[in-house]
Computed example of a mutant assay.
Amino acid sequence: MSRLDSMLRRLTAQRDGLNWAAGQISPLQGDVLDMGLGNGRTYDHLRETLSSRRIRVIDRLLQCHPSCVPPEQDFLQGEAKPMLERLAAEGRSIALAHYDFGFGIKEKDVAEAAILSPVIAQVMVPGGIIVSGQPLVGFEELDGPDGIPQGRYMFYRAG
Rank of each mutant, 00 (worst) to 15 (best):
D5N: 13
L8T: 02
Q14G: 06
D16W: 08
N19H: 13
N19D: 09
Q24D: 01
V32M: 01
D34I: 01
M35H: 01
G38M: 09
G40L: 05
R41N: 11
H45Q: 15
R47A: 01
R47K: 09
T49K: 13
S51L: 07
R54S: 12
V57A: 07
V57G: 07
R60I: 12
L62C: 10
C64N: 14
C68E: 10
V69D: 01
V69Q: 11
P71Y: 06
P71I: 04
E72G: 07
F75L: 12
L76V: 07
L76S: 03
A80E: 00
L84V: 04
R86H: 14
A88W: 07
I94D: 06
A95V: 04
L96G: 04
F103A: 12
F103E: 04
F103Y: 09
I105Y: 06
K108N: 09
A111Y: 00
E112F: 07
E112L: 13
E112K: 09
A113M: 06
S117Y: 08
I120S: 11
A121Y: 02
A121W: 00
V123Y: 04
G127V: 03
I130G: 10
I130V: 15
V131C: 14
S132R: 02
G133T: 00
Q134V: 02
L136I: 03
V137Q: 11
G138T: 06
D143E: 10
D146A: 15
P149M: 05
Q150M: 13
Q150G: 07
G151I: 06
M154E: 05
M154A: 03
F155G: 09
F155M: 02
R157L: 09
A158S: 13
